[in-house]
């Protein structure tokens, strides 16, 4: 693989993802409205009923809005990854995925480029949300906005790799709608995005254990800690390990010799 070729392909994939995203205004708007609805309505309601003790990385009592914003930022990445995954299933059904997969580059590289492009396109929306959240007095240190960047990229890549894996085993968009319901909501709710672990433990140890083992919780905590200029090495390692595992599994899923697609065909 020649470097110049690889870079040009990456730029081309990034440009295509950007153009498509910008032209799907409804998707753009809902991507930013969704977390704001959670913040403005859900968090406001919970603020009065949910007391939070001092929970790291916070050094004092915080408003529920402050607690929930990193989780909502991770939720944006999760929804974006799943939307991107849905787009891949759509592309495969509509045929344009074939164009990508018949490019003269290693398939793992093409998949990685597609995943990276999706993350790059999604990040400005997350930053826009973090800035708007200041209106609700969610004001992390200014440097936190810079520090959280690699955490957002890493979390976005892990969720993107997960979406890629889901798309590699989902053969039809109808199936994919079910996958969305069975993946997104359990992943999001059984995590530390909305409540700290100790709160979940009060509801039951099983739920707390699920949340503790849920890689999405690690993504949330990684974002939460770095946004407040702290580093959580365990979360970072879990996210990195999951990224590698999900991506390798997705590469196998799209492998021309071993992938499910090659076994199912359906072309006639």
């Amino acid at each position: 693989m020649k470097t110049r070729h690889a870079v040009r392909a990456l730029i081309g994939i990034l440009r295509r993802e950007t153009l498509r995203t910008l032209r799907q205004r409804g998707r753009l708007l809902s991507a930013i409205i969704r977390p704001l609805v959670w913040l403005a309505i859900f968090a406001a309601g919970f603020r009065s009923v949910l007391g939070l003790s001092i929970t790291p990385p916070y050094q004092t009592y915080v408003l529920y809005e402050v607690y929930v914003v990193p989780g909502l930022a991770a939720m944006m990445l999760l929804f974006h990854a799943m939307a991107s995954s849905l787009a891949m299933v759509y592309d495969r059904e509509m045929g344009s995925m074939r164009l990508l997969l018949t490019a003269p580059l290693p398939r793992w590289y093409l998949l990685a480029a597609r995943m990276l492009a999706s993350v790059v396109v999604g990040l400005p929306l997350v930053y826009l949300f973090l800035l708007i959240a200041r209106y609700w007095d969610v004001r992390p240190p200014v440097l936190g906005y810079l520090a959280v960047f690699p955490a957002l990229v890493l979390a976005g890549l892990m969720l993107g790799a997960f979406g890629l894996l889901v798309s590699s085993i989902s053969t039809q968009m109808e199936n994919f709608a079910g996958v969305m319901n069975f993946v997104i909501f359990p992943t999001f709710f059984a995590s530390t995005a909305l409540y700290p672990i100790w709160r979940l433990a009060e509801a039951g140890p099983v739920l707390a254990n699920i949340a503790a083992w849920n890689p999405f919780s690690s993504a949330v905590e990684l974002i939460r800690f770095t946004l407040y200029l702290r580093f959580d090495p365990v979360s970072a390692l879990v996210v990195l390990a999951c990224l590698v595992v999900f991506f390798l599994a997705a590469v196998v899923g799209y492998d021309p010799g071993r992938g499910l697609w090659s076994r199912r065909g359906g072309e006639g």
């Binding site: 070729h5 690889a6 040009r8 081309g12 164009l99 580059l105």
Partner: peptide, 9 residues
Amino acid sequence: RYHASLHGL
């Protein structure tokens, strides 16, 4: 243009 980039042009 997208296709051209995938072929390294």
